[in-house]
Design a binder for these strands. Structure first.
Length: 287
DNA sequence: CTGCACGCCTGCCCGC
DNA sequence: TGCGGGCAGGCGTGCA
């Protein structure tokens, strides 16, 4: 479920049950996801208080106080299929959640208040690590990330400089997390449609004014998606079990052959493959 | 340095 | 109904 808006939605869903709570029990059911899990993860989580839940790009960061004077941060990435579900110790399972496969519940936390938090990830592209809080930002997974698209470090001057000299298609440039952090296949497609830029255009060859238009296009689509609780594809759910509904607002993503939503445009949305991934765009509105 | 193909996994949907 | 192929919201690695 994982681009920036979905991860932010998960973070917000977790806030009331996890921030300030103590992890009373932690169960780690397999030794690895994408990589081996940190040694003794369950033991290191158990008894820790979650002092703050943050997000950086598509990563959720849980700052932990183990109570021994140290400060650790749990780093979590949902990969392609990772989901976090919140339940209650008094209810046994998530059988009511559509598409939930309990054999992929890899990490189960129970808080002192009786909340049950499950990390479920069928494809296991997710990543989990534990690192000292003081140096969390320079963890190898986070060190190279570009600015947050909703933050102050992201501007038209920044983006123009980042694009300069780049011959890759703008689609690929925006997916490069070192350039700007948190965009994925859906929101790049949507932002490019809003800005009227073809995904095929070379990043370094976009006129300054059009690069400038891309910044509010990116911010706008991310803000709206967060407000909608993210996008729910293939029955995926938010942590609260509710469905996000931004998928109903897609202008181009997964709309191959359907009419462009620009007033007066009678073109149909086209699907192409760029560096192995689908791109959707309107060949009339996007140049 | 840049750009791109590939591999990592499982589930689901479609066409035959 | 069963089966194979293609597809999926990501990212690190390794190659040219």
């Amino acid at each position: 479920m994982p681009e920036l808006p979905e991860v932010e939605t998960v973070r917000r869903g977790l806030l009331p049950v996890l921030e300030g709570a103590v992890i009373a029990a932690a169960e780690v059911r397999r030794p690895d996801l994408r990589w081996p899990l940190p040694k003794g993860l369950a033991a290191r989580l158990t008894g820790s208080r979650v002092v703050r839940l943050r997000r950086r790009s598509k990563y959720i960061l849980a700052d932990l106080d183990p109570g021994d004077g140290t400060a650790e941060t749990l780093i979590l990435h949902l990969g392609m299929s990772g989901r976090i579900l919140i339940g209650d110790v008094r209810q046994g399972s998530f059988a009511h959640v559509a598409g939930h496969l309990p054999q992929h519940d890899h990490i189960v936390l129970t808080t002192d208040a009786g909340a049950r938090i499950v990390f479920n990830d069928a494809r296991r592209f997710g990543m989990v690590d534990l690192t000292p809080t003081a140096t969390a930002e320079s963890h190898r997974l986070l060190a190279g990330l570009g600015p947050e698209p909703l933050g102050n470090g992201f501007s038209d001057t920044y983006l123009a400089a980042a694009f300069r000299g780049r011959r890759a298609p703008v689609k690929a440039a925006l997916l490069d997390q070192r350039l700007v952090a948190g965009l994925g296949n859906i929101y790049v497609a949507e932002a490019l449609w809003r800005a009227g830029i073809s995904p095929l255009r070379q990043a370094g060859r976009i006129a300054q004014a059009r690069v400038a238009a891309l910044v509010p296009a990116i911010r706008g689509v991310l803000d709206e998606a967060i407000a909608a609780g993210g996008s729910s594809l293939r029955d995926h759910r938010q942590a609260t079990g509710e469905l996000g509904y931004f998928q109903h607002s897609f202008a181009v993503y997964d709309r191959e052959g359907e009419p462009c939503r620009t007033d007066g445009c009678h073109s149909t949305i086209r699907r192409i493959v760029q560096s192995g991934r689908s791109s959707f765009y309107c060949p009339h509105c996007q140049r």
